[in-house]
């Protein structure tokens, strides 16, 4: 299957290893992975802050960059969900662009969603081994994509991995893009609860598939002296298949 990778700005810049892992895992699963270089930012920060004209310009670029009818795999749930806003909001007035945006949204999946719902992967068959104790942070914007427990299911298929569920798993980590900087104090109080919940699990590794949540929670853990590592599910699978050196 041909796959176009959609790598968010934060992933590209701050968490390249998440995307590297995704490329290697998808390659191994027999997909023909392609990274369209014309992509830049999906416009989410501008859209969510009310700068819709600016966001629409970026939306057009993304539609153009991801044109071609291939399955699109996004390494960010919120940026993946952003594609939906293209057709529903930003470009709704232009019939041609709106249709193109809706067509694109229809073939865009978040990474874990793609593995579970499209490829129907069973990691047990692939012999993924990754000894260690992990917990998983569910990122809010997965809701908009209808992603629920895909990552949990994948983690549970990994040999040697002990999965401990986070208390109040669905509660937001307090990132919310620019919310984290506009209301730093409030955002900090919200993420403090997440840090406490992580500490209680006793897990050494936190799985977070969203770069933004990762930056926020990892930064708060470091400030609080909570010593845990952060990885995406793609990285764990890549390490468990020997495609990436375990860190």
């Amino acid at each position: 299957m041909k796959v176009s990778l959609f790598v968010s700005c934060l992933t590209d810049t701050f968490y390249p290893r998440m995307a590297i892992a995704a490329v290697k895992v998808l390659d191994r699963l027999g997909c023909s992975v392609h990274f369209p270089q014309k992509q830049t930012c999906c416009g989410q920060p501008m859209y969510k802050n009310g700068f819709h004209r600016e966001a629409a310009v970026l939306a057009k670029r993304m539609i153009d960059a991801l044109d071609g009818g291939e399955q699109v795999v996004s390494l960010s749930g919120s940026c993946g969900a952003m594609i939906r806003a293209y057709g529903d909001e930003l470009l709704a007035d232009d019939a041609r662009l709106r249709d193109a945006a809706r067509e694109l949204a229809g073939r865009t999946h978040e990474f874990s969603q793609f593995l579970v719902d499209v490829l129907h992967v069973d990691l047990r068959e692939l012999g993924v081994k990754w000894p260690g104790v992990v917990t998983y942070h569910y990122s809010c914007h997965l809701r908009q994509l209808g992603v629920t427990d895909q990552t949990d299911r994948l983690l549970k298929q990994i040999e040697g991995l002990e999965y401990r569920r986070l208390a109040n798993r669905e509660q937001c980590c307090g990132f919310g893009g620019t919310f984290a900087t506009k209301f730093a104090e409030l955002s900090g109080a919200i993420v403090a609860e997440k840090v406490a919940a992580i500490g209680k699990t006793g897990a050494g590794t936190v799985i977070s598939n969203e770069a933004g949540c990762g930056m926020n929670i990892a930064g708060a853990c470091r400030r609080a002296g909570c010593d845990v590592r952060f990885k995406s599910v793609a990285e764990v699978i890549a390490e468990g298949l020997g495609l990436l050196e375990r860190k």
């Binding site: 590209d12 390249p16 590297i20 900090g188 470091r222 400030r223």
Partner: peptide, 22 residues
């Protein structure tokens, strides 16, 4: 920076981007 660091530490990016690696 304090808009972020008031509440938590800020991670820096690694040396290379995904694009460069790819």
């Amino acid at each position: 920076l304090s808009r972020w660091t008031a509440a938590r530490d800020l991670p820096t990016p690694p040396a290379d981007s995904f694009r460069k690696w790819y």
